[in-house]
């Protein structure tokens, strides 16, 4: 197995049970830090673009998975669907990086969850994301 996977933080739990999540992953849930939900993946060869950095599509996939999961955890609903997602690509991720996302709930209503998230490689910000989820 790729050595980057051996460097995942302690307590990382594989959440890539099937479908595109597994096809694009694996993605992991990390222990919460207070109200902040944390997730991670190890940047593998298949996640790259031609310039040797992590593909933007994969970073948005990671954000969508982590933020959808956070919506479900916050609402207790079985499924939530993404209504809108805004991503700013702040800096590059590299092969072998452990990429972590920290997701916070801004507001929750009966039918909606508003979320913000920041994606890091170590201390360095790679992407900012915010979005809106519908509670199914």
């Amino acid at each position: 197995m790729d050595t980057a996977l051996n460097r995942l933080p302690e307590g990382a739990e594989d959440i890539s049970t099937g479908g595109f999540n597994r096809f694009a992953g694996p993605f992991y849930r990390l222990p919460d830090e207070g109200a902040v939900r944390r997730f991670a993946f190890a940047a593998l060869e298949k996640h790259m673009n031609g310039a040797g950095t992590v593909h933007g599509g994969l970073l948005m996939t990671f954000a969508d998975i982590a933020m959808s999961r956070t919506s479900r955890l916050a609402s207790g609903a079985k499924s939530c669907s993404t209504v809108s997602l805004n991503c700013d690509f702040v800096g590059p991720g590299r092969l072998g990086d452990i990429v972590e996302i920290r997701v916070s709930v801004s507001r929750q209503t009966r039918t909606l969850v508003f979320l913000t998230a920041v994606v890091f490689c170590g201390e360095r910000v790679v992407m900012n994301a915010s979005g809106l989820w519908r509670i199914a």
């Binding site: 049970t17 099937g18 479908g19 595109f20 999540n21 096809f23 694009a24 593909h55 933007g56 599509g57 994969l58 948005m60 996939t61 990671f62 969508d64 998975i65 959808s68 499924s79 993404t82 997602l85 991503c87």
Partner: peptide
């Protein structure tokens, strides 16, 4: 294709955003 979908059988948002980026 099936492998582009989530467990609910609809195409994953991440796949659609990847398609948009491409």
């Amino acid at each position: 294709a099936e492998h582009h979908c989530n467990m609910r059988g609809v195409v994953h948002g991440g796949m659609l955003m990847t398609l948009a980026d491409m």
